[in-house]
Design a protein around this nucleic acid. Structure first.
Lengths: 208, 208
DNA sequence: CCGTTTTGTAGTATTAATTCGACAATTGTG
DNA sequence: CACAATTGTCGAATTAATACTACAAAACGG
């Protein structure tokens, strides 16, 4: 049993490692503190499964996932997230993740998820599975829900934390006008009107 | 060495425990998944230090901290947070925390923090320490938690619900410049920076 | 495979917000 | 009480944000 664990929080890495070692006492659990390290190690050995945080500084877990999909199509990647939220999960699964777990699950549940993805199946954290199911259900009738594009989502998150348009422009190296355009699209898609609405939404959904 | 560890994420608890066990191989590390459990265990044994997440479902880590301060005045409590935000840190320290660590610190740093608080000293996570220092440096010390005047509070509430400066000017029949001035004063008094911060604060305090 | 929609990106012109400075009225305090 | 600090209020000058508009590239839907 060889597992690659990636998370920028040392504490989380240790925790994952410990949980996995409890289950697989003779397993090899390797830690990666960021996406680069993850990619490097993924290319440098035979692994049974990768467990990675979705949001890490620098190249994100999502980008790393993408890379791994290309170079190791059969290596299952389980994405971990703090946020039990659809926006993240949909992205991860579209990028080829084998599973999506919220970080607050019990360790038995984590072990469970690992087992499933090892057999080639998908795993979705229970709380989210329900949400997604309802979502798909409702999609037939009302349909006010539109998915944000990646860029839009970036801008959404930054706006929700109180960044100004010009700060975001700086951060993403885009023109302020462009950010304004994204902002307008985000607001329209979400049927909201103000940045405060975004903040409230994000807080409610525990996105920030 | 007896440590109480509280966090709602099993993964984080495991990680903390492991890091502490690496450092204190014969230590007793007990896990608590929520604030109730933390209080119960704190009252039920002799501990050297408590390490607790700041935000847990139900009664928060901050409330638990308060309780512990009352019943065990000499027991050091180290607060952990995902967010290296001053708002939280200031509150935690005011409520009697011995230290404030961001969850992304390396495990050596955590061990360090524990050592410090054991000797009765305070520990503040480096990234935050810098922020706080710059703030004090940059200008007059904006004493936290000054009371807002009535007008200021009106403006505060309206801003927190997402009204724009000009809308507020309209509502209160004042010039937009005046509202901007109030806004600046409110922000200064509360040591906040953005409208999003106001919204967060208001939501937290259930003011809106 | 081809037309349609969505996405990523900006420029220009217009509008809103902020900074800075100011000052009278009110409040707090030794 | 007298003097300092706070509060309520604003204008002018400067900056930031938004509304439109636009267009190429990518994704999608038949």
């Amino acid at each position: 049993m060889k597992v690659l664990v990636a998370d920028d929080h040392a504490i989380v890495r240790k925790g994952l490692k410990q949980i996995l070692l409890d289950e697989y006492p003779f397993g090899v659990i390797e830690e990666c503190a960021n996406a680069e390290e993850l990619l490097q190690k993924a290319n440098n050995g035979q692994w049974d499964v990768v467990i990675s945080d979705i949001s890490m500084p620098g190249r994100s877990g999502l980008e790393a996932l993408h890379q791994i999909r290309l170079s190791h199509p059969r290596l299952p990647v389980l994405i971990l997230s703090m946020h039990p939220e659809e926006q993240y999960a949909i992205r991860a699964l579209k990028a080829g993740a084998s599973g999506y777990c919220s970080k607050d699950l019990a360790h038995e549940e984590l072990v469970n998820a690992v087992r499933r993805v090892l057999t080639g199946k998908k795993y979705i954290t229970p709380s989210l599975a329900e949400t997604l199911a309802t979502q798909l259900d409702e999609e037939s009738q009302p349909e006010p829900y539109k998915r944000l594009s990646d860029r839009e989502f970036d801008v959404f998150k930054l706006l929700a934390t109180g960044k100004s348009v010009s700060e975001i422009a700086e951060i993403l190296s885009l023109s302020a006008t462009t950010i304004s355009t994204y902002r307008a699209r985000v607001l329209a898609k979400m049927s909201l009107k103000t940045n405060a609405d975004l903040t409230r939404y994000a807080l409610e959904k525990k996105l920030i």
